[in-house]
Amino acid sequence: MSGMKSAYDLAMERLGGESNELTDGQKAALSEIDTKTKAKVAETEIMFDQQLATEADPAKAAMILQTRQQQIARIKADAEEKKENVRQKA
């Protein structure tokens, strides 16, 4: 393949790993995972921001922020796991 390399390909080169070419189906699946992940993160941010807007207690607000960050991290970790599964299927 000539032309520009993806961030994944460049990272694999730096780490000394082999970069497997992805099929069009895999690329589409990865793109769909990214799109769904962005939507879930946005939905989560909106939900927690609404809770924060109505919370007057600083301790409860801190707990809401912590929970928000944990939820977003979980969403992103799940997405990465799904993406890795797609990459492994050849």
Rank of each mutant, 00 (worst) to 15 (best):
K76D: 03
L52K: 04
V41Y: 09
I72G: 00
A28H: 07
A61W: 06
Q70A: 07
M1R: 09
K89Q: 12
L10M: 14
T35D: 08
Q70P: 03
Q50I: 03
L52P: 04
K27R: 15
K40D: 09
K83P: 02
I64D: 03
E21M: 10
E32H: 11
L30W: 08
S19L: 00
G25R: 06
E21Q: 10
P58R: 08
I46S: 14
S19E: 01
I64N: 08
D57C: 06
K76A: 07
R74S: 13
E55N: 07
V41E: 13
G17R: 11
V41H: 02
D34V: 09
K83R: 13
L30P: 01
I72T: 01
Q88E: 13
I72S: 01
L65K: 14
K36N: 13
A73Y: 03
I75A: 02
G3P: 07
K89W: 02
D78Y: 00
Q26G: 03
A77P: 00
L52D: 04
E80M: 10
L65D: 11
P58D: 07
L65S: 08
T54L: 15
V86C: 03
K40L: 13
G17F: 02
K27L: 14
F48N: 05
A79F: 01
D24R: 13
A56G: 05
S6L: 09
E81L: 14
A53H: 04
D24V: 00
R87S: 02
F48M: 09
E21R: 12
T35A: 13
I46W: 09
D9Q: 14
V41D: 03
L15P: 00
E45K: 14
E13W: 05
K27M: 10
G25Y: 08
I46K: 15
I46H: 11
E18V: 10
E80R: 12
A79T: 01
V41I: 15
D9L: 06
L30C: 10
K5I: 09
A53Q: 11
L52W: 06
K40H: 04
E13S: 08
L65P: 01
L15V: 02
A42T: 11
Q50N: 15
E43Y: 07
I64Y: 04
S6M: 05
R68N: 02
Q51Y: 11
E80D: 11
D24A: 15
A28G: 07
A53N: 06
Q66V: 03
Q26N: 07
T35F: 12
Y8R: 15
T67G: 05
I46N: 15
T23P: 05
Q71N: 12
A73V: 00
E55F: 01
E21S: 09
Q66C: 03
M63P: 02
E80C: 05
K40M: 10
K82Y: 00
K82V: 08
A53K: 14
N20E: 12
D34A: 13
N20Y: 14
Q69R: 13
K27Y: 10
T23W: 03
M47H: 11
Q70E: 11
P58G: 06
A77E: 14
D49A: 12
L22E: 12
Q26M: 08
E80S: 10
I75G: 00
L65F: 00
D78G: 04
I72Y: 01
I33T: 07
K60W: 04
